[in-house]
């Protein structure tokens, strides 16, 4: 079976997407060319303009179309709090939780020396400058609960401590609607060690 040169190029390009192999690439390409040429055109234009216009926020490294992202540009947000996350997807997740009105810093990864990812690759110098120059009262460490994520949190906590800034780590525990029987032992032991006082005002 022979594809034309341009079709071959399209198939190869589609395979840069995660989880897309030769079969899926072929299905996508045929669909776009055969069934939905308008959609394909829109996709091409959107991709081009996103590539040209979307960069990283100078302040927090989140995706942004101006120098600052929408969160950093928002004057109503608490500038004294900064939440450290690994990826842009984590910013969306934390923000959608609705419980946080401060600002962010996106590491775009986590410390992983075996992959050659150190402080430089995570933009730690930019974070350090923010900790030094802005009036920040609390750094919330929302990195993942892996060996690398914990190491990243500990490292940044050290930086914050040097500036006399309080560093907190998000709690690990039992998920909502979770039954204890099915919670793994390490999560359960963390949940126990970080237990909280039950509010009793309803009883009084």
């Amino acid at each position: 079976m022979h594809f034309t040169p341009r079709l071959q190029q399209l198939l190869a390009a589609l395979r840069c997407l995660p989880g897309v192999g030769p079969k899926s690439a072929q299905r996508m390409a045929f669909y776009l060319l055969d069934r939905d040429r308008d959609g394909a055109g829109e996709l091409a234009v959107a991709l081009r303009s996103a590539l040209d216009e979307v960069g990283h926020c100078e302040h927090c490294r989140m995706f942004a179309e101006q120098a600052l992202c929408t969160v950093c540009a928002d004057k109503k947000r608490d500038a004294g709090m900064i939440c450290i996350v690994e990826t842009p997807a984590d910013v969306i997740a934390v923000d959608d939780s609705g419980g946080y009105r401060g600002r962010y810093f996106v590491l775009m990864g986590r410390l992983s020396p075996l992959d050659g990812i150190g402080p430089l690759e995570l933009g730690i110098n930019l974070l350090e400058r923010r900790l030094r120059e802005e009036t920040i009262t609390e750094v919330i460490l929302a990195t993942s609960a892996t060996v690398e994520g914990e190491a990243t949190a500990a490292y940044i906590a050290g930086l914050a401590e040097k500036q006399g800034i309080r560093a907190t780590r998000i709690a690990h525990g039992v998920p909502m609607g979770g039954e204890l029987e099915y919670v793994d032992s390490s999560t359960l032991s963390l949940a126990l060690s970080a237990r909280t006082q039950v509010p009793t005002d309803a009883v009084d």
Binding site: P113, D115, I117, P119, L159
Partner: peptide, 16 residues
Amino acid sequence: LKTRQVLAAMLSDGVI
């Protein structure tokens, strides 16, 4: 060794 390089960068921050 990448761990050596990363360690050098971390030591220069003075946190570790």
